[in-house]
Simulated assay, not measured.
Amino acid sequence: MPSFRVQLNILALRPGHRPEAVMDAAVAALGTRHHVEANQLDIVGGVPRITLRFTVEEEEYDADARAARSAAALMRAEVEQVARTRDLVVLRRARGRWSPV
């Protein structure tokens, strides 16, 4: 199965939400469509960034990428309910490297 990563910078929490709600929302949204293998939080240049790794049922190469982008957009929409975000990036694992989709 093709492996993908989605990365999303978190700018600020929305009022009334705890920090853990960001990752909870991301995992729940992505998990409705695909198997989430891992997730992590990093601080890059002083900005929190969540990264989730997930697999997509194998189809045609372009169809896999469309499914991953669609799932990433859904994830971002759900995370936007609890936090302001920017810079959504979707990456695909190919030949041992992560490349933008």
Rank of each mutant, 00 (worst) to 15 (best):
V47R: 05
R66M: 11
G16P: 11
P15A: 11
A12L: 03
T32W: 04
R69W: 06
E58G: 06
E37L: 15
T32Y: 06
D64E: 15
Q7Y: 03
V44T: 08
R86H: 10
E58Q: 12
R86D: 15
D62P: 00
I50C: 02
L74F: 09
F54Y: 08
V44H: 01
R14Q: 10
T51I: 11
L74R: 14
A67R: 11
G46L: 02
R84V: 11
R76I: 06
R53I: 06
R66G: 04
A29Q: 07
A72F: 04
R69P: 00
A67G: 02
L74M: 13
Q81I: 06
E58F: 03
R49S: 02
P48R: 04
L13P: 13
R84G: 01
L8Y: 05
N39Q: 06
R33G: 02
G45D: 12
R84M: 10
E58H: 10
G45C: 05
A65R: 15
A67W: 03
F54E: 01
D64P: 01
M23G: 01
E57A: 08
R84T: 14
F54K: 02
G45I: 01
T32R: 15
D62W: 08
I43P: 03
V82D: 10
Q7L: 12
I43F: 14
H17N: 14
A21L: 00
R5F: 03
I10L: 03
L41W: 08
P19T: 10
I10T: 02
Y61P: 10
V22E: 06
I50P: 02
Q40D: 07
A83W: 11
E59L: 03
L11M: 10
D87N: 12
N39P: 00
L30T: 05
R33S: 13
S70F: 10
E58M: 05
L30S: 03
A63R: 12
R49F: 00
R86L: 07
Q40T: 07
P48Q: 08
R14H: 09
A26W: 11
V44R: 14
I43H: 11
Q81R: 15
A77Y: 01
S70M: 08
L11F: 00
R5C: 05
N39I: 00
T85R: 05
L74E: 15
P15F: 04
V27A: 08
G46R: 09
A29V: 05
E37M: 12
Q81L: 14
A38V: 00
